[in-house]
Amino acid sequence: MDWNLIFENSLKGFIGINAVYFAIAALGLNVQFGYTGLLNFGQAGFMACGAYGLGMTAHYFDISFWWGIPLGILFSVVLGLLMGIPTLRLRADYLAIVTIASAEIIRLVVRSVKFKTYFGGSDGINGFSSTFRALGNDFGIEESNRYGFWPFRFTGRELWVLIVGWLIVAIFGFVVYKLMKSPWGRVLKAIREDEDAVKSLGKNVYSYKMQSLILGGVIGTVSGMIFALDRGSVQPDNYSRDLTFYILTALVLGGVAKVSGSIVGSMMFWGLFTFMDNFLRQVTKDPVTIGNVTIMKSTQVGQLNYILIGITLILLMVYRPQGVFGNRKEMAFDGR
């Protein structure tokens, strides 16, 4: 058993790119779900908006890479409006249904053969990130060089995405923190508690919910962009339902309605996930057997790991519903 390797990979998972894009997406989801109480099950759809915004600059429009950022944000604002207009006046559950369906519709449309010219079909889109990588070079980070010290050793290509990614986490973390401390954030939190009370005090609840949905969606969009830039490609099937639910798991793990909860929750999610993955792979190097019955092979590591995620989430909801950073006192008042 190579413990050295297990720890190196786990620690890298802790601050790696997966944790980064999860943290950004979880921050967005936190604005919607944690602060406003909007049940958005379609964060993957917003992330796809960002990824395809970038991807389509090279694939369909043939314009500068930088146009991809406003394009992706435009997509997500339109998506937010489309989801929100019919559902935000209704009860929270309707939004959940509509968001999960819209995210799936987006995935199925972008991978369809019919729209291959626009979205590249199930092959996705490649070759749009060279401008971004070149910028890293301009800052003196050689793509093929290795940087860092044990255990945090990354290639120049990884490091550049990580630097930009964590910078964005910091910016959005600060923005969300400040907004939630403002009177605007107070209205959102009040809506989460009781819409009618907020209405009776003269606030346009519908408009605030829409603002929250779109802000969270735009943050999710940027997360999708980082994801796409790291992979250097956009694959439609990366943006399926499970992505949303893993992000939700990370958010609940860290604690809802806390900025630190979204960020550290995502880091812990990927730290633990990488640890279990590496550990199980080491254990199953040779198939695990009792007598002559094979219990586990290395090909089953993936499945077991996802089962463990599910169990973790269940245990968390039962024994620590406020998450790692959540406020126990607040949870005590959950009379709903």
């Binding site: 939190k189 009040a190 508690e193 009781d194 009370a197 009776s200 005090l201 008042f333 959950d334 009379g335």
Partner: peptide, 13 residues
């Protein structure tokens, strides 16, 4: 301005 029969205090604020 109105209040409600079932009190609507915003408990987590």
């Amino acid at each position: 301005v109105r209040t409600f029969q079932l009190t609507k205090s915003l408990t987590k604020l």
